[in-house]
Design a protein around this nucleic acid. Structure first.
Lengths: 334, 334
DNA sequence: CTGAAAGCGCTTACAG
DNA sequence: CTGAAAGCGCTTACAG
């Protein structure tokens, strides 16, 4: 059945034509007689021939591999994001005949990525997040390897695919304000992640637009540990904050936990909002009002864009994908 | 600086020797004069030459790629496991000059893996979990691609790397029994995951050993949703169960949640135990008694074993890695 | 100890 | 429309 190592040469011999002809029949490039092509194609079909991609690559100076750069220090909150993103990327890659090579990097250690590039094992790369000081990005930039970044950056020379976090956070905040909330707080993690800045801006934007608005807001960033959240929540309860917006589902989990332990009812005594709408909070009661991004689509789009670049097509410098605000039971109905 | 596309031919010409010689100097295979070798090596060093791995692979019929087969349906509880495992694998692979190709599969869809194999883009594969009915494993088996499985299976023809879940669960249970608990329950997810069966057995083992022991146990498997957990916990509280053992950290999170909502104090009124000791429960109060596996080591070991197989070395059919039982504050001190 | 040559399995000008 | 030949960048018998 599996004529395992059938080569183009074998087929040529078998069919009494040249290797060139076989190659042309397969690739569709170059002129070839309709009948010859059909003969070749049906032979291939029947004998289950699969071209050797490595050899093809060598001849064409391609690898048909894409590197996906994955931070090794992803935290729990980001894991579901990574998973879906990866799914989107690998589906598109696969559909286009590409494979995905994994490069795990940390802030200090970009070895794996460097190796993949130095060994010429990839045609392009996808960065799965963006940092203010982004080593992998710097490296990619100076190495000349085509790449796209999932996330945003000020660098006008990098192709970016991102959700519109700023607008999303603005819209969400606006809705909260419209519902009559006068005192709210935003909690986020690493300021070094560009996405954190963008959300923060969106939050501020909402207040900008509401000029004469009376009320107060507080912002906490670089919050990473449950202990910090507990402290913050305690303060917020004390000073009468009405709503806590968390920038990721891990933080939101901590917030809910803190409230529960202090017997503060959600949403009656404190409203709670999160981002991502990930599996992390999936089973939470009450269900959590959240922004929803289609992460798989994000991955797909990123991969499609990179593939287009590799084909020499010109692509948008910046692709902003949408979002959805999902009002649920952790906030009061207006 | 970056003499980008330097080839073996360029160096040969430059140094006035043959390509064969260059190749030998690099690979260390075949006889070569000490001085010649040094000349070549220092030239390479100086000009920052990197051999083209793809070309090398074509000549040697190798790809220097390993497929890591990743279920696309990993749930939150498994995500941290995957991340660490991946880290271990990719570190070892990288250190040995191999790259990691990602194959995302689902129960129904093993396309990506099939493609990688059919295209001859990998030298071997690593399965990151084992199922009772394991499609990817079946495929790998019949395709003849060398592979190792992280997890266990009855199939004596597959090389397995696993933690000793059965002993771990037995030891944990024994400790609970020794501490005086008379009534306990075990909650787990998919029975189709072999690891679930193993743990269940370990749980039973502990009772076997304690012959004349009086008391009762309950086992719930195929539990996936928070709603199910809530119901179960309710029953368990009602019938006076003293301790709930969860097979993963997601389930345990649900259990803790259920207890908290019903104002059942941990560990005073109900003791709680989990597996994995993952970041999922990292910040939980009280801290959760748990078994701890070194997942990164697991990944490393799996990769090392596969690499050894590719070198033609003979390897253990079965490698069982250890575990640690961490007693914390969700159980009573003896 | 060293090299010429063939080969890995493809592609692609070039010529016909 | 088709093919011979050179080439992608390596490795590896074989001969010397």
């Amino acid at each position: 059945m599996d004529d395992k190592n059938l080569t183009i040469g074998d087929i040529a011999e078998e069919l009494g034509v040249s290797k060139t002809t076989i190659s042309r029949a397969i690739s569709g490039k170059g002129r070839i007689g309709e009948k010859t092509r059909e003969r070749v194609l049906s032979y291939i079909e029947e004998h289950n021939y699969r071209p050797n991609v490595i050899a093809k690559g060598l001849a064409q100076q391609k690898t048909f591999n894409l590197a996906v750069v994955l931070p090794g220090d992803y935290n729990v909150a980001e894991l579901p994001f990574f998973q879906k993103c990866m799914l989107g990327i690998s589906r598109v890659a696969s559909a286009h005949g590409y494979d995905v090579l994994l490069s795990m990097v940390t802030a200090q250690n970009t070895k794996q990525l460097r190796r993949a590039v130095a060994n010429r094992k990839i045609d392009g790369a996808i960065l799965t997040r963006t940092l203010a000081e982004d080593e992998p990005m710097k490296f990619l930039l100076q190495s000349g390897v085509p790449f796209v970044a999932i996330g945003s950056t000020d660098d006008e020379s990098v192709v970016q695919i991102d959700n519109d976090h700023r607008s999303a956070c603005r819209e969400l905040t606006e809705r909260l304000l419209q519902s009559g909330i006068r005192k709210l707080a935003l909690i986020g993690s690493d300021e070094s992640h560009i996405v954190t800045k963008n959300r923060r801006q969106g939050f501020e934007d909402a207040f900008e637009k509401k000029k004469g608005w009376k009320g107060s807001r507080q912002i906490f960033t670089n919050v990473r540990e449950n202990a910090q959240v507990q402290k913050i929540v305690e303060e917020l309860i004390a000073d009468g904050t009405e709503c806590i917006v968390s920038m990721d589902d891990f933080l939101c989990g901590c917030v809910l936990n803190a409230l529960q332990q202090r017997n503060v009812a959600v949403p009656e005594q404190m409203q709670v909002v999160s981002f991502y709408d990930s599996t992390l909070l999936e089973h939470q009661k009450p269900s959590v009002t959240s922004i929803r991004f289609d992460v798989e689509e994000l991955g797909q789009k990123a991969c499609e864009t990179l593939l287009a670049m590799l084909e020499g097509e010109s692509v948008e410098l910046r692709t902003l994908l949408g979002y959805e605000v999902r009002m649920r039971n952790s906030t009061k109905k207006k």
